[in-house]
């Protein structure tokens, strides 16, 4: 179990959250090539170390937050409201960084 220091609700069990994905910047749809778009859709840094990622506080404030977490130790050094406005506003780029076709790998009831 890890506890995530939600900037709106204080430290909570990670079970209250949904992991959205690595923070990524969406390329401009009007100029992007299909290859660049698919790289944005699928490729991940997946580091064994510090990473910046988006979580959604499903059963708390229901807001997106940006978390800096060490993927080997699960230590969290920073958590802040996500979004350009810095108040937890929904940032399209980060929302869309989830995998497009399968969503969470925690498989639903269709195996």
């Amino acid at each position: 179990m890890i506890r995530i220091p939600c900037p709106h609700c204080s430290a909570r069990n990670s079970a209250e959250f949904r992991h959205v994905g690595e923070s990524a910047t969406r390329p401009d749809p009007s100029t992007v090539t299909p290859e660049q778009w698919r790289a944005y859709l699928y490729e991940r840094s997946n580091p064994a170390g510090w990473t910046t990622e988006t979580w959604f506080h499903t059963v708390g404030c229901r807001r997106y937050i940006t978390v800096e977490r060490h993927t080997v130790t699960n230590e969290i050094r920073a958590a802040r409201p996500a979004g350009r406005d810095g108040r937890g506003g929904r940032e399209p780029a980060e929302v869309l960084s989830t995998r497009a076709d399968s969503g969470s790998p925690d498989a639903g009831g269709q195996a």
Partner: peptide, 10 residues
């Protein structure tokens, strides 16, 4: 079971 709900190397 299924994988843990968030990525990690732990």
């Amino acid at each position: 079971a299924s994988v843990d709900p968030y990525p990690s190397y732990s």
